[in-house]
């Protein structure tokens, strides 16, 4: 159980570093070191703070609650054969709603500063997560239907690949969870982290007023979110039958491939027009319904669909 946790926490520190290094290599730039993300956080922890006069105690509390919800969410994710600390019926519902409450408190904190663009960022974040939530539930619902179990560990451990269509299903689910992680972390096509423009940022503009220790937590949380989605993808990729050590070896490989993919997406396409983000996320939920229908076909439940 501990091994899975440690693996995720380590990846959360390294992941942003790998993404920025690969993006730099693609751009023929020297690029920062892999551990730059870690150094930034260490420096931020040593810095002082400046709080805005219009904000109350809630503003200082929000990053702490946000980071704690993510940290608790990590305890729900199994890694291969390593069971998670919490694994019970419907734990993915608890996982999704924990992330939602983290987002809720961050939106409140952003609105507390009373500035125009932080309100805009909060509004966009609330709207996009509203559209993206059903996608996660449909995917998990269909795989739960497919495997007949109801908790992360059981679903992933019995997701044996039995017919060609299941390959298609797990491939499509990985594709969707990949884009879900891009929305959740406000990377391309929804938002671009390294263009510094107040009016087009989504997540980064919400944290414009945080400083010092709180900002460090938020940046740490960014890496953690990537690691969480990375381990979800790892569980979907690897049929669990084989032994522990193979998984231990496979986990970093899958994370690195995932990071490289993120970097490639961010290098070779522009980001969506803000209005098209909503349509784009809705197409994702349409795709997730395709996953659900394929599961129905696999289980010959279709019979005579009206």
């Amino acid at each position: 159980m501990g091994v899975g946790l440690v693996l995720i926490l380590i990846t959360s520190l390294i992941f942003p570093g790998i993404v920025s290094v690969v993006k730099a290599k693609v751009a023929a730039r020297k690029g920062p070191r892999v551990m730059q993300h870690f150094y930034d956080i260490i420096k931020l922890m040593k810095k002082g703070n400046v709080y805005s006069r219009t904000t109350g105690f809630l503003f200082q509390l929000a990053p702490i609650i946000y980071f704690s919800t993510l940290l608790t969410a990590v305890f729900f994710i199994p890694v291969g054969n390593y069971k998670a600390l919490f694994s019970f019926e419907g734990d993915f519902v608890m996982f999704a709603y924990l992330m939602a409450s983290g987002r809720f408190i961050m939106i409140i904190a952003a609105m507390d500063t009373g500035s125009g663009f932080e309100g805009m960022g909060a509004n966009r974040e609330a709207f996009y997560s509203l559209l993206a939530e059903p996608v996660f539930f449909i995917i998990m619902g269909s795989i739960a239907l497919h495997t007949g179990h109801n908790s992360f560990y059981d679903i992933f451990s019995s997701l044996y690949v039995e017919s060609a269509l299941t390959y298609f299903v797990s491939a499509l689910s990985i594709y969707l969870i990949f884009w879900l992680s891009m929305i959740e972390n406000s990377r391309l096509p929804v938002d671009d982290p390294n263009t510094h423009l107040e009016l087009t940022m989504v997540h980064e503009v919400m944290v414009l007023d945080h400083s010092g220790f709180e900002l460090g937590l938020i940046q740490l949380a960014g890496g953690l979110k990537f690691a969480i989605f990375g381990s979800l993808i790892f569980n979907l990729v690897l049929p669990i039958q084989n032994n522990y050590f193979v998984q231990l070896a496979f986990f970093p490989i899958v994370q690195i491939i995932y990071a490289v993919l993120v970097a490639f997406v961010e290098s070779f396409r522009a980001r969506n027009k803000m209005m098209r983000n909503a349509q784009w996320i809705i197409t994702l939920s349409a795709l997730s319904i395709v996953v659900f229908l394929t599961i129905l076909i696999i289980h010959e439940k279709v019979g005579m669909l009206p």
Binding site: A24, A27, A28, R29, K30, G31, P32, R33, Q36, Y39, D40, K43, K47, V50, H196, E198, M201, E204, L208, D209, H210, S211, L215
Partner: peptide
């Protein structure tokens, strides 16, 4: 930018003075 790339030493320009050193 690509040529001088001070980002290699972890030096970069940020959006808000709250994040700045």
């Amino acid at each position: 930018n690509v040529n001088f790339d001070m980002g290699r030493y972890g030096i970069e320009f940020v959006a808000s003075p709250r994040h700045a050193d």
